[in-house]
């Protein structure tokens, strides 16, 4: 397993991970600012944090109350 981790060129994969991270942060910031969401607020917190990529997208599309 270690070999794999060494063999992966991290500068290539980094953007992929960074973008996911940014997406999550933006989701969290927005979540923190809104008082009301569609459905329980804390549920969205878990969705944003624990569902990779999909979580923040779900939150932006379905969770935000406009």
């Amino acid at each position: 397993m270690l070999e794999v981790i060494e063999s992966i060129n991290w500068s290539l994969v980094a953007p992929f991970i960074v973008i996911q991270f940014i997406l999550m942060i933006i989701g969290l910031v927005d979540w923190a600012k809104t008082k009301q969401t569609n459905g329980p607020r804390w549920m969205w917190l878990f969705i944003i944090i624990f569902l990779n990529i999909i979580g923040p997208i779900l939150y932006f599309i379905f969770g935000r109350r406009e």
Binding site: I8, P15, F16, I19, Q20, L23, I53, P56, I57, F60
Partner: peptide
């Protein structure tokens, strides 16, 4: 925030498979 998250999601969708398939053998 659509102007932020939509481009990010489109980038992720675009690079996801090329990267995974490249590292698949390892």
């Amino acid at each position: 925030k659509k102007w932020i998250w939509v481009p990010l999601v489109f980038i992720l969708l675009a690079i996801m498979d090329p990267i995974t398939n490249y590292y698949l053998p390892e």
